[in-house]
Amino acid sequence: MSAEVLALDVVAPAVSGFIQGSVYGLLGLGLVLLYKSNRIFNFAQAEFGGVAAFVWIFFDTGRGVLPNLPTPVAVLLGILAAVLVALLTERLVVRPLFNAPKITVVVATAGVLLLLIAVEGFLYGGEAGSFPAIFSGDAVNSGAIRVTNQGVAIVVVLAVLSILAALFFSRSPFGTAILAVSQEATAARLVGISVERISALTWGIAGFLAGVAGILLAGTIGLAAPGSLTGLALVPAFTAAVFGGVTSLPGALVGGIVIGIIESEAQALIPKENLPGAGKVALFVALLLVLLVRPAGLLGKET
């Protein structure tokens, strides 16, 4: 294999997969948190990010009657919107179902997903809009291999947020409370931890992570329609979370990057004529293998 082919077919997809995978990792992080606190899967996770992206672009472009705000403010409002939507979901859908079987709650989150897509559609008119990269320009550009500043920002954000998360869970009282609830809710209640408060807090954090991920991802792909972030990132994010046994925060981060690279390489190396949708197939196989062979995840360890 010549150096040129290697760069084109192997290295370049790995680079873009790494960046894409960082977004999966961010979303996976939120999924793991919610699983730890509520023992459920949240199918609306990626669309929380979609809400953030749409709110951001509304204010960034001053759509309709909305004021045209500076980009950082618009981004902040977008993330806030995601947090708000997550909190509302927790209050109106998840909490009333606290004692219901988990599978019921999962179906309900799918309902939330559909609802969010519809609301985005109403607000945006249903078609794709362009989402500019927040950080323009390229960090590396050698023809085949191109790393945009946006891509660098994604990796940096992921690194910062994961360090913050690690500190949060090991140092802050809230973090340890979340862990306590996730391990033994009744005992946690006995020692005076409000399970409801912890649940709300976790959903807020998950919404924040999804909001950051959604805005970065929309800016990277450049175009997004209502629901397209779910189509793009929900399954990889879940696969990332499952890689870590759905309970390990570092597992989700590493899993996200691994999944991103696997998907990207499969897309690049397997021609469409031989196997359409090779990226998706690779994800499916990876998920199935992990679930069948090591249900506790490759890095599965309760942390």
Partner: peptide
């Protein structure tokens, strides 16, 4: 009800989703 929007194709999903959530939360 949706006077502010120009995406009628989302009405079905909206009502379906509301129906689902209502069903699960209130009328299983």
């Amino acid at each position: 009800v949706f006077a502010f929007q120009n995406a009628p194709q989302f009405a079905v999903g909206f009502i379906g989703a509301l129906g689902l959530i209502l069903t699960i939360v209130r009328y299983p």
